[in-house]
Design a protein around this nucleic acid. Structure first.
Length: 149
RNA sequence: CGAGUCGGCCAGGCGGCCGCGUCAGUGACGGGUUCGUCGCUGCCGAGGAACGUCCGGACUCCACAGGGCAGGGUGGUUGCCAACGGCAACCCGGGGCGACCCGCGGGAAAGUGCCACAGAAAGCAGACCGCCGACCCCGGUCGGUAAGGGUGAAACGGUGGUGUAAGAGACCACCAGCGCCGCCGGUGACGGCGGCGGCUCGGUAAACCCCACCCGGAGCAAGGUCAAGAGGGGCCGCGAGGUCCUGCGCGAGGGUCCGAGGGCUGCCCGCCCGAAUCCUUCGCGGGUAGACCGCUCGAGCGCGUCGGCGACGGCGCGCCUAGAUGGAUGGCCGCCCGAGACAGAAUCCGGCGUACCGGCCGACUCGUCCC
RNA sequence: GGUCCCGUGGAGCAGUACGGAGUGCUCGCCGCCCUGUCAAGGCGGAGGUCGCGGGUUCAAAUCCCGUCGGGACCG
């Protein structure tokens, strides 16, 4: 299992990792890989991201996965699987793992393979957060401006 | 043996290794028996429904001179309980051969409303067809009648007779229902027996309402401590300052120095405050997702005994049984059985309701056979 | 964890206080007309277990109880 210090515990840290992290999906999981932020860390980020001695993992299991018993089981299995991989990650790395509804049906060995595969893909993947860049703002304002006058 | 009724209990078990969380002990480090970090060892670590959040409390904060109105809830009786819309026993009504089960089960002669369509008529008076009598030309007019027809969920008791022009509780017998009186039984709801009366007076209160009883509001994201915090006010002091209370800013509009407004968590009476940096309406922006406490020993659980039909209560002995905060139960392996359902604590209790693979124990009923 | 709200044709709503035939609005769908064609427009039409179960009532989308699903809010 994962000791508390190896888990992401702040809502802000989750948001940052989900936004910055490179994304990859396998089977029942989606992984967001956020490498240790160089110095480009925004000054508002309060904590110690630099002083971390280990990588950290966080888990998001939504209601769509199942009832409370199912969600707990999925989260515990993911935590166990992440603990085995965690030692190979550079300190300061934040990884958020989201579970999809399919995760409820997978046993531990399948889930473990999903996680390892997704992490490997996200870690080596290029140009992760290309989403949101393209500014598809064709013209809604022009019409609006005309009406306003 | 078969079919069934009621009540209680269990919720896969045993073992090994590696992890996670709280607590305790212990070692090292930091000035450090008390604090912090890291390590080691040990104990403990989800449920009967933890669920839904439908009721009731504990607890916390807010409010509270007094009176009235409004609002909400409950609804057979007697008990149990901290309390309850819960539970027990009993009564009444309904179902079952029976054990037993089901029922929001007060009041409709206190008043109001509603009863669509159909039907003559839907509530207290009346009469469409009809029946009977009288009168005039087929057909109608007037009067009597409510037995028959038809409509409807519901039509002014039912059957038989007397009676009559035709009829009708107009009268008689029995039955059903209602009311009153007396006696007996019961704490009571109510029941039993006897007598009398008028002969009947529709339904709906999970429609308004009446009666009886109960209810202040919000909820642990309650609330408190610390940290941060522009400013404002009270008191003490000559002053420096001290101490307590309060708590974000900007802009625009409105109200006003004796009555604008505010408070008494809905409204009224009544009472109180009231001119400041105040009150009120609208808009914009900022801030909050820091730490700790609350946080688990309690209407607690188990066993025995006594009282009670029972719910439950008294006494004695024993036990301590999760306290997380992105939220602790996972992974690997072995053996056994019937191959294991519904499902995860978040302040804590008592209920109710709902979901659910199966298994065990006890009491009882009906049927069949044997002794 | 707590407090509330909403389920009605394919979509969005009204109807629910005070029970009386599933009534209505906008869009969508189908057919016809118009046009060389499409859109727009005109005419006509289809389509609903009122989330589900139980109860009260002669009668329930409406009243009562339970249950399922969806959504909002909290200093």
């Amino acid at each position: 299992m994962l000791p508390a210090e190896a888990r992401i515990r702040r809502s802000r840290d989750f948001s940052v990792a989900l936004k910055r992290g490179r994304r990859a999906a396998r089977g029942g999981v989606v992984v967001h890989w956020a490498p240790p932020s160089g110095e480009a860390q925004s000054p508002t980020k309060p904590s110690d991201a630099e002083g971390q001695s280990t990588a950290r993992a966080g888990f998001v299991v939504s209601k769509a996965v199942g009832n409370a018993v199912v969600r707990n089981r999925v989260k515990r299995r993911l935590r166990h699987a992440a603990a085995e991989l965690l030692r190979t990650w550079p300190p300061g790395t934040d990884v958020v793992v989201r579970a999809t509804p399919k995760a409820a049906e997978r046993d531990y060995s399948q889930l473990s393979r999903d996680l390892a595969g997704a992490v490997a893909a996200a870690r080596s993947g290029r140009s992760p957060n290309g989403r949101g860049r393209r500014s598809r703002r064709p013209s809604p304002q022009t019409g609006a401006g005309r009406d306003a006058s």
